[in-house]
Nucleic acid binder design. Sequence first.
DNA 1: GACGTATCGCAACAGCGTTTGCTTACTCTT
DNA 2: AAGAGTAAGCAAACGCTGTTGCGATACGTC
Lengths: 357, 357
Amino acid sequence: MAGAHDAAVLAVARRGDPVSRAALAQELQVTPQAISKILGRLMDRGLVEEAGTVAAGPGKPTTLYRIVPGSRRAIGLHLTRSRLHSVVVDLTGEILERRELEIGRLQPVPELIGTLADEVRALRDVGPGMLLGAGVGMPGPVDGEEGVYRGTSAPDPWRGAPIRRLLAAELGMPVLLDHDSRAALVGEAWSQPGLLRNAALLLVEDGLGAALCLDDQIVRGAHSHAGEVGHTVVRIDGIACPCGRRGCAQTEYRAALDRGDAEHAARILAEVVVNLVRLVDVDHVVLGGRTVHEQHEATMDAIREALAAGLSDDPWVHVEVMLSTRGMDLIAVGAACEVLEHEYGLPQVLVGPEERG
Amino acid sequence: MAGAHDAAVLAVARRGDPVSRAALAQELQVTPQAISKILGRLMDRGLVEEAGTVAAGPGKPTTLYRIVPGSRRAIGLHLTRSRLHSVVVDLTGEILERRELEIGRLQPVPELIGTLADEVRALRDVGPGMLLGAGVGMPGPVDGEEGVYRGTSAPDPWRGAPIRRLLAAELGMPVLLDHDSRAALVGEAWSQPGLLRNAALLLVEDGLGAALCLDDQIVRGAHSHAGEVGHTVVRIDGIACPCGRRGCAQTEYRAALDRGDAEHAARILAEVVVNLVRLVDVDHVVLGGRTVHEQHEATMDAIREALAAGLSDDPWVHVEVMLSTRGMDLIAVGAACEVLEHEYGLPQVLVGPEERG
DNA sequence: GACGTATCGCAACAGCGTTTGCTTACTCTT
DNA sequence: AAGAGTAAGCAAACGCTGTTGCGATACGTC
């Protein structure tokens, strides 16, 4: 696990307040001496710096350390069929600049890559620090490992496009591609380290998506398809869905909205959340996405109510429901944070036989 | 990650066929020299032995190694309100002996501990090898970390009982406690190493339970409650459930069975499985438990059909549906395998800030 | 019997965290 | 002002694990 402790120290530093070696040693369960070596490495890389000393009683005063937000940057793109939303963020995930582009028509893949590359180039020189690369978040089935948009069975010019490889070749920098909801959760977790060890994010845009983080690991699944919660059935024999089944959450939700029944729509989201909590037992649920943002209070109330009714009332099973801290930038910031996470996050756990492809 | 490679080598050896150093080096992505050291350690502990040589062409013939099944043993208990099923298994998870005990009435906790301990003592001296400890699998909310039966809000003499601590004290050996479905999945994964990297197990006993393994990690969740799939809603506004909500899978399933509609019952299980696959994207689904065993063919067909209908038809999203390999011993064997896993499995991943409680 | 080849194993080395002992820097007491 | 007490930090040695280099061993072929 090379770098696991380095990443953990960086995660603590990202919380904002300067920290002492002793506090880090306490939190990571290693000796202060090991923290010295870790901080030495991080300072050599320019990621961390000294932040003065505090004297609290007798003895040598404690040296404090803090993260250097401006030492690294990453670019994040949120791609949909109609718009392209772009941001540059610093090492802590704070936005340095933001761009917005309306896409008039469905571009063929080579043109799309050009459009994406132009946006990245426009942000390339914003802010200080080393630019690590660009992340792209988009809806629909995405293979994050391969960096390919899988698409559905329906005809689609983007289907099967190896976006990561093409864009990386075009730009000459590292590129990551992921599902929009997973990107969003990575972004939320990056800026609130330690809080979302076991969390789910529900993304309500045109469709309904989810992402899971269990034991500090983002769940991608066997085929990188985890989180397709929109076509989860909440009402057997319910409304027919284009996917061929009946009673899918996404279709029921949209039908309720279309007939003006916001209350019932909120209730469907609530049932989805409760089902999800029962299955994987997360203790934090984050809501995000364009649609939910408009009526978030009512939706959150409905979810909290359903959780209270559906779960055991013991205090040790409390589930915190919260709104995304990033608003409309949620996915673009998340895509950028995937790049940061890739470089400076906890190493992916992939042990066991035939560990790497 | 102390012992991660040792555990991985043991996992490969568990598959049965003797293996060479070169093959292990290839599979674990380490040098043959490292495999030498790892095998040396494992042989010192008696877990592995040489298994002859084979000469395949010019050069020094390859030495083969195999696991020593009789070197270790573990005891597994499957506890329900009416029965106690016990097994001893060897290091590979094979059953050495099995016992069955009817429990006439609901025993108070001290008496229950005595009953459990008696069964363990009866199996204590069966078979060769070092006895590692005992595992207990039981239905209902169980806190595997703490080894406590949480129970529901309903009055229950077992509620809050620290079974692990009490039984360990009584027996003077390590004891593990876990949810029945999680134990079952650990058992299945132990005897088929490498196959169930991303898998779900659906356990159909009196209730409906599930367990998840994602990226080779058993999912326990924030409160050790993961897998409570029985009270997942599959039909909003459906049949009233004792849990207070309507349309819970477990209640709908039982209602269908009670009115003799086996086909609809199977369909409900199928919807649960499809929902689960969509959310976490597992590529293996294992079915187990008393109830499903009687009609497994019909149930499995229904699930396969629903998966084919509900999932994209692309070949790279195939989901394998299989029946438990252990029949009625599923949970008892799984509980025993939790002990083996605890001792010789991949180390639990718990990195990051405030990593240990 | 000499030669090529593949496996095996010893020895030195490298990364990372721990242990141990000493130095530094500050406060409090006399 | 000098000394005692206390906490933080540094340096070197060590342990564990896997890697690299090189020589030893065992087999086939010419």
